[in-house]
């Protein structure tokens, strides 16, 4: 654990600010859920999933970047971490695609 790296760390206040933002984003997510229940039929089907997924992606990245302080680490660790994330995402999208077909035609 190198002290030189620790120096760059945000202060507790910054963490609290980030947590507040995360909380607000969660609030948005929940609001979107109820909004969809209310007016979902008037909008194209992809709007709410896309909005929700974007919000969760932002939260995801904030936690990774600040709480897991990946922003302040050597870039190598980001790559290590993203290999798994990207691989999982792409493999399972392909799997969903080919299996989705089974649902459609089967």
């Amino acid at each position: 654990m190198s002290q030189a790296v620790e120096v760059h760390h945000p202060k507790p206040k910054d963490y609290i600010r980030i947590a507040v933002v995360l909380g607000i984003l969660t609030g948005f997510e929940i609001a979107l859920f109820y909004l969809e229940s209310a007016v979902g039929d008037d909008l194209p089907g992809w709007v709410f999933p896309v909005a929700l997924l974007s919000l969760s992606a932002i939260k995801f990245l904030m936690v990774v970047a600040y709480f897991m302080h990946l922003r302040y680490e050597k870039p190598m660790l980001s790559r290590v971490f993203s290999i798994g994330a990207v691989l999982a995402l792409s493999l399972f999208l392909i799997l969903l695609a080919i299996s989705g077909q089974i649902v459609v035609f089967g």
Partner: peptide, 29 residues
């Protein structure tokens, strides 16, 4: 401190997985 850091990494990871599960499993209809 390193142990705290490692447990922290693990803990945050469990949290981000829940961030995804919450949206993908619960909120998307």
């Amino acid at each position: 401190g390193l142990s705290v850091e490692l447990v922290g990494l693990y803990w945050h990871f469990v949290d981000i997985i829940w961030i995804v599960i919450f949206v993908v499993v619960y909120l998307i209809q």
